[in-house]
């Protein structure tokens, strides 16, 4: 408990590196335990990326050696020779198209659902979230026959299925954004003489922009990461990075190529994630949109 210190004897000020938040002050017993757990978690999350980076620069790395025996860029050369660049381009195009379609569709649906004027709202939001609960291969196996008979081109089929897979994420993200979005801003703008179009572009979209960015990022990830839908519905018309990685990883002795392709599949979403973080910080509404605003409003009298 508290030590008795005579009056007038000033306690030395805190070490400035110690957090000023009382609950986060380190306490000796828990500190060692917490540091150990944190170290283990860091290793857990980061370790699988190590072989990718090492193999990226390895020309030769035979079995017992702990580090590559010959460094170089043979993997890069080989990956380029095996269509890495077109695969990268097709992955990027597919992911961007999915994001460009699923984000506005999700935002529109979320806006309608938050304003509460949709008939059977529970059923509608259930259907919009359902692709999360439906394994991708089920949709593929059911629908290939429909898409084939309707003569829908493979690429279009892939995009339709991926947009559906991305919708739960965009709808949910935008519902969170719209729940915190105060419609009074739009009413205010109308009373100040802004047209509907002006309200949309100058008030509504800027206010939900952080939400839109998050939704678009998640939709991009769905398109960028997919394997099953692209391989089955695309039927070879598009070869994305995951398809290329899969074909090399299933073979033997392609470790360097797999590493190079994997790294190139990791970098774009990571760059987007960092950009998203910066965007969220720069934009002041982002933090307040996520705050517990709903429960903050004081309740009225009983």
């Amino acid at each position: 408990m508290a030590m008795l210190i005579p009056y007038g004897q000033r306690v030395t000020p805190d070490d400035p590196t110690v957090s000023s938040r009382g609950l986060m002050r380190p306490r000796p017993g828990g500190r060692t335990l917490r540091l150990t757990i944190a170290a283990l978690l860091t290793v857990w999350f980061a370790l699988p990326l190590v072989p990718l980076l090492l193999w990226f620069f390895a020309d030769r790395w035979s079995a017992p050696a702990v580090l590559p025996t010959e460094w170089g860029f043979d993997g890069v050369t080989s990956a380029l020779a095996n269509g890495a660049v077109p695969a990268f381009g097709q992955s990027l195009a597919l992911a961007l198209v999915v994001a460009a379609i699923a984000t506005p569709l999700g935002a529109m649906a979320a806006r309608a659902l938050t304003r509460g004027a949709v008939p059977f709202p529970r059923l509608v939001s259930g259907i919009l979230l359902a692709p999360l609960a439906l394994p991708a291969f089920v949709a593929v196996m059911g629908l290939t026959i429909v898409l084939l008979r309707a003569r829908v081109p493979g690429v279009v089929g892939v995009v339709i299925l991926l947009v559906a897979a991305a919708l739960p994420y965009t709808v949910y993200t935008m519902r969170v954004a719209y729940a915190a979005h105060d419609l009074a801003y739009e009413d205010e703008a109308r009373t100040l003489g802004a047209s509907r179009w002006n309200v949309l572009w100058r008030v509504h979209l800027p206010l939900v922009a952080p939400g839109l960015a998050r939704a678009a990022f998640l939709a991009f990830l769905v398109g960028w990461s997919d394997y099953v839908i692209t391989v089955l519905v695309g039927g070879g018309t598009i070869v994305t990075l995951p398809l290329l990685v899969a074909s090399f990883a299933a073979g033997v002795g392609n470790d360097a190529v797999v590493a190079v392709l994997s790294v190139s599949a990791i970098v774009p979403p990571l760059v987007l994630l960092l950009a998203l973080g910066r965007f969220g910080r720069r934009y002041p509404t982002a933090s307040y949109l996520h705050g517990p605003t709903a429960s903050q409003s004081p309740k009225g009298s009983p």
Partner: peptide
């Protein structure tokens, strides 16, 4: 909940610096 940069807080004459909330 906040840790002061300097100064003392005495409860019943005892300094509570470093005492958890």
């Amino acid at each position: 909940l906040d840790v002061p940069s300097s100064g003392r807080i005495l409860v019943d004459g005892a300094d509570v610096a470093g005492v958890a909330p």
